[in-house]
Design a protein around this nucleic acid. Structure first.
Lengths: 194, 194, 194, 194
DNA sequence: TCGTAAGCGAGACGGTACGTCTGGTCTTGAA
DNA sequence: TTCAAGACCAGACGTACCGTCTCGCTTACGA
């Protein structure tokens, strides 16, 4: 089992854990990532500072734990039967996730932090939310079409433009997900032919 | 003229300005963006703290001023005569810029900061280094091929995958710039035909 | 009996009690009074924190219990038959106690704590180690000489100068116990004559 | 001059210094020495925490600086012309100082702290408030009587009993300063005769 | 040539978050 | 019921940096 053998001592309080995770969620939206402090999280959660540090080293770790489940859910799209619709559906989810959702805001904050902090980068690498969700869609579509040599290329083609668009502060109303999906699909078909 | 009318008083010291810009350049590589403080910059530059605040509000502003010229230069690629070679050349420059250069490290830090700080976002919007450089290449290629409705779509297709790859911590040796360039080119040609 | 009626349940562990008392003795010498914490005592004794708090409220209480017996023993001097020798003998014991012994260090720490903490003051008042030991000597001497109105005056004259000397950090090599004893004795004799 | 050469920089704020010294004075009486924290001092003085640490290392240092002047003043007694009256006057001042005055409370706290902290002991040794004031009186009296070999013996005889009485929590109403003064005086006269 | 005015390096100012420590309490399972 | 273990909330520790302020000193211009 993963659970550590309880060799005496008070067990970890699930109530405190939840309070911290919720506090992080709330604070990210209220004050933003950089103004969110370990002190503030503890106070908002009604929890001792030591209790936070006992279970997490950094606010990035807490935020990751608090939002990764939401993120996976938001990026999981049901199959439609049509390759193009599957891709468009995913891109629309991705657009909403990156631009409009709480989990997406957390993800952007973590990507940002990872540029300066090796530990955060490792954290994100441990569970590649965006890459995984895109691979699921690409592989589903590839059953009907063809899977080009490294599927990562296609996921990058699928996710990259939207990611760049949002991260560099552009407005997504000017990005046509249908056209983007068509491009990716034609790449997949070209691979089949070739 | 932009230069403020000098109504008495000591003129601004160019020496101090250069010292600050160089200090920021050095410190970014030595300690990273988040460990780079206004206090540290002033001390490294051998300059008073007030002198830094007098001319710049934030470290992002200084970093932007210190690196934007380098960034533009690194992303300007000479025409080769071949559409595909132009695109591949640009993607190779972009790869080196984002992953390996000092100016690129600064750019990634600023993009990261912009996710949390509206002022930094505005700063980056004021001079869209990546978008501008990509548009130059796309428009050059389009002379021979065709320019699809919004050129921004194509620049996103060109820049996005590489941007996503680097920002999410992936290794660029697994990204084939030739293949990526071919995809973009086929999109441009499809636009011509259609 | 003082022992509480055992109404079922595990009996108090004498082993734990001794471990705590010894830990306090050791820690006082090793780290000093203020650096000695309840947490540290429990860990050093290999005892749960709650076990310490269950039987003592403060570190002062533990220290008092741990050292009062030693202190009494060190300050009990055998009669010599000579009034002056009795006084000199006591002063020499007192000098060694206050300046050189472990029990004396504990006593000084408690006197110090009592200045700020009413509970510690009450604790010390409950068993006046210094006063009692001095009174024994003074009363013994007074059998041959005379007991002036309040014997406390004489004990203060006997103990006070040495106490002041040590507590204010002076070196006792410069304090002649013989001369001091002579002064006290002449006071006693003056009372006899008067 | 003692004033450090001002080699640039904002000069020290006398206002902040005074605020800290007054805050320490107030807090000692209100909450006691051990409950008086550096944080609390800074907040009470309306001063930054760093400002306190910049000029003093410990609360003992602040307290010493805040009260040493008051202490000296309280222990300076005017000559009366009579040896006995001089001694009685001093002992009455000492009684009031140790037992009833704010400066005396500070002094007792510092003596207490010095038992556990070498730095505080050194601080007190640098300005021996009690010893100095007693020596002044003893030397004045000795002009008419006689000065025994080391005057420190006599000061210990003068100060010690009262010091012991108060520090060990006894009530000073039971201590007759007249009788004590008489004892000290007879010692001085015995030295003259001998 | 001298006064006015702004820039300069230095560094103290009041604040506030950092991560660590201890305090005293509470909650387990085993003895 | 006591025990060892150890998590709980609270809050002080001393340090670092924040952005502002106040010094004495340049360094220019214009009267």
């Amino acid at each position: 089992m993963d659970t550590p053998v309880n060799r005496g001592g008070r067990p970890r309080s699930e109530q405190a854990r939840d309070a911290v995770l919720h506090a992080v969620d709330d604070l990210l939206l209220e004050v933003g990532y950089s103004a969110m402090t370990m002190k503030g999280i503890a106070e908002r959660a009604g929890v001792g500072r030591q209790t936070v540090y006992r279970w997490w080293s950094t606010k990035a770790e807490i935020l990751f734990e608090a939002t990764v489940a939401d993120a996976e859910e938001e990026l999981a799209v049901p199959p439609t039967g049509s390759s193009l619709d599957d891709l468009v559906g995913y891109l629309d989810s991705l657009k909403h996730f990156l631009e409009g959702s709480a989990a997406g805001a957390a993800y952007r904050a973590l990507i940002a932090a990872a540029q300066q902090d090796r530990a955060v980068a490792a954290l994100l690498a441990s569970k590649d939310v965006l890459g995984d969700s895109a691979r699921v869609v690409v592989e589903r579509v590839a059953e009907h079409e063809a899977l080009p040599s490294p599927p990562e290329h296609v996921t990058a083609l699928l996710v990259g433009p939207m990611f760049f668009w949002v991260m560099s502060g552009r407005d997504t109303v000017h990005l046509d997900t249908g056209e983007l999906a068509a491009t990716v699909l034609s790449e997949l078909r070209a691979a089949k032919v070739g």
